[in-house]
Simulated assay, not measured.
Amino acid sequence: MSEEIQRITMPKWGLSMKTGKVIEWFVAEGDTLDKGDDLADIETEKIAGTLESPQPGLLRRIVAEPGVELPVGATLAVLAPAEVPDSDVDAVVAEARAQLESGELGGEEEILPSTAEVDGRSISYVTMGDAPGEPVVLVHGFGGDKNSWLFVQQPLSETHTVHALDLPGHGASEKDVGDGSLDTLAGTVLGFLDVIGAERAHLVGHSLGGAVVAAVAARAPDRVSGLTLLAPAGYGAQGSRPDAEYLRGFAGAASRRELKPLLGRLFADPALVTRQLVDDLLKYKRLDGVSTALQALLATLLDGDKQAIDTPALLAGVNVPVTVIWGGADQILSVPTGVDVTRVEAGHMLHMEAANDVLADLYGR
């Protein structure tokens, strides 16, 4: 294949993604693309996301038809300069279709989680990328896990080493959260930096994870090169009210009927709550120790129906770049007023619903 001809392929969003399908193309053959242009909406078994162009170029062929299930790595479209003959482009398309028909695709090397021992607890994490320099560490929110970064970690790993971890009580990590305090959770992140040998890292935290990474920076400012906070807990005015009904309801939900309507509050578009997403969370909530862990963490998040965390106070003495990004349709934690916040079109789970906007703000992608 000519080096001038480039394939755009089905991305791998998350460890468990094996296939996806194009729902809608936003571009047409003959369009000139810039890096980062929206190409298509792609649906996985967990959630839909928007695929960006990984590079600039002339879109010569669209290969993937909407609605067709394709394996990770399948060719979706072909870019090539205008001077490249149609016959050369058609040969690449024919090769891609033959590769698909042969069943050659779908056997890519699986990325497996690793385990770190931190403060006597087993912490699960996954690493993508091997770029030199300071790594990026992604820290999820209350009831989330490392897989919530499925649309963020892989694109970031093209230019950075990126670690996503499960906090104690979450995902595949040990369910013991100790006293469940912010200090305990911050200690886990600091201990994790020790395990991976990172003197400093850029920390990205969502919701509870945002407060956790702020606490890390307050406790050990020399270990943090920058903070990106996504709808961080405790960032509103002191005593402001989160959706306490959601937090308590999520902690106590034990059935699909209870859980699904609550999850709809996390997104601007409730249709993004797929059956698989509900099933995965129910499976997690039924694990031994999860209920106790979530109840302990509720005491860290809530003072009655008010926020118990004061994240601005944690940041008061922190002298590193801090970016705060919020979904404009967030129903769990309202967008604070009078502070410097970047808004994106999303609900509380902005890193899943508006990942491309988050990436653009994070590193100017």
Score class of each variant (00 low, 15 high):
211 A>E: 07
305 D>N: 06
195 V>L: 00
73 G>F: 07
250 F>C: 07
348 H>F: 06
58 L>D: 14
331 Q>K: 15
216 V>K: 13
254 A>P: 04
259 L>M: 08
100 L>T: 12
281 L>T: 09
212 V>I: 15
228 T>L: 09
212 V>S: 02
74 A>E: 01
317 G>R: 08
288 D>G: 12
85 P>Q: 03
66 P>M: 07
216 V>G: 01
282 L>T: 03
8 I>G: 00
228 T>W: 15
325 I>Y: 13
154 Q>V: 12
102 S>R: 14
295 Q>A: 10
336 P>N: 09
216 V>R: 14
247 L>G: 01
74 A>P: 09
350 L>Y: 05
330 D>I: 14
16 S>D: 05
3 E>Q: 11
36 G>Y: 10
236 G>H: 14
255 S>I: 08
310 D>M: 00
275 R>C: 00
18 K>F: 03
301 L>W: 10
295 Q>W: 08
304 G>L: 01
26 F>C: 00
301 L>A: 02
271 A>F: 07
87 S>T: 15
256 R>D: 08
360 A>E: 02
229 L>M: 05
355 A>K: 15
190 L>K: 06
360 A>V: 12
27 V>Y: 09
133 G>R: 15
343 R>N: 10
55 Q>E: 03
105 L>M: 10
83 E>N: 12
119 D>S: 13
120 G>S: 02
2 S>A: 04
145 D>H: 14
66 P>T: 11
111 I>Y: 14
259 L>D: 02
49 G>C: 06
344 V>C: 12
45 E>T: 11
154 Q>C: 01
136 V>G: 04
176 D>C: 07
113 P>M: 05
222 D>L: 04
181 S>R: 02
159 T>Q: 08
38 D>M: 09
180 G>A: 00
104 E>M: 13
88 D>R: 15
167 L>E: 01
350 L>Q: 04
183 D>S: 10
105 L>N: 13
